[in-house]
């Protein structure tokens, strides 16, 4: 409770500083709107459904792309860890492409798919895929051989070995790869949405972009806050519980 109050006080002070800066009129109100103007914009956007629609469209792109990235990445990671041929080819490719900032996929996606949903999905998948492949491969390679040997003597082999021993043993690595993939996907999707208007749906990135076009700073800041909150929620609702479980089971330190 005390921690919560301290955190709340911290954010309250941030807002007060912002309000103070607005009242001091150091910058033009066009460049720095007041907190209440931003809240008014967010209320309006929430009331007329703009915000909900944009959030749903963005999240749908993100979740579908992320899911595809996981479904393709996990088995590829297992294959690269298991067979040298895959390690030399797909493993090397993944390592190379992971260093490529995922925003760099946007121009290629537009040329290949045009201004379509497919282009958005492609960018998200590219953001997710390589991190997941590499994390899975690293995780599998780091499984202590003694686990395999112990499982072998108890009659585990092939699929059972993969699903009941190797994958669970590699889980801490895989989860951190999933988290990194999520972060990359989220960033590249925002970049793509800001760059490109996709007529089938206006996402959060597009709202941000139009805020700039209209010089509506309260919109820009309001949408930025929404994006931050979504990122925080994804972490708190999805990743934190998994990480807490891993820390508890493995006995690794809980930061």
């Amino acid at each position: 409770m005390k921690r919560f109050l301290l955190a709340a006080a911290f954010f309250a002070v941030l807002v007060l500083l912002w309000e103070a800066a607005y009242r001091a009129k150091i910058w033009s109100p066009v460049l720095l709107p007041s907190p209440s103007q931003v809240v008014t914009y967010l209320e309006g956007a929430a009331a007329d459904g703009t915000l909900a629609r944009a959030t749903v469209i963005t999240m749908r792109r993100l979740l579908i792309g992320y899911f595809i990235g996981l479904v393709v990445g996990l088995p590829l990671g297992l294959l690269t860890a298991r067979w040298k041929l895959f390690g030399d080819t797909i493993g090397t490719l993944a390592l190379g492409l992971q260093t490529l900032p995922s925003v760099c996929w946007v121009p290629l996606a537009l040329l290949w798919f045009g201004q379509t949903e497919a282009a958005m999905l492609f960018v998200v998948v590219m953001g997710t895929l390589w991190s997941v492949i590499i994390a899975t491969e690293t995780g599998v390679r780091n499984v202590p051989p003694i686990y395999r040997r112990a499982a072998l003597t108890m009659g585990s082999k092939r699929l059972h070995m993969w699903f009941k021993v190797i994958l669970p043993a590699a889980l801490p690595f895989i989860v951190s790869g999933m988290k990194q993939g999520w972060a990359f996907a989220w960033r590249s999707l925002m970049a793509a949405e800001i760059f490109v208007t996709i007529l089938t749906g206006f996402g959060l990135g597009q709202l941000l972009h139009y805020g700039r076009e209209l010089s509506a700073m309260e919109q820009v800041i309001g949408i930025m806050i929404v994006i931050v909150v979504i990122g925080l929620l994804a972490d708190k609702i999805f990743f934190s519980p998994i990480e807490r479980f891993l820390h508890r089971r493995w006995g690794t330190s809980q930061a």
Partner: peptide
């Protein structure tokens, strides 16, 4: 090959940390 007729107990406990 290995089989559960002959089970091994290793020097380091090869217990699986993902299970209780």
């Amino acid at each position: 090959g290995p089989g559960r007729e002959r089970l091994v107990m290793f020097q380091e406990p090869a217990l699986f940390p993902w299970l209780d």
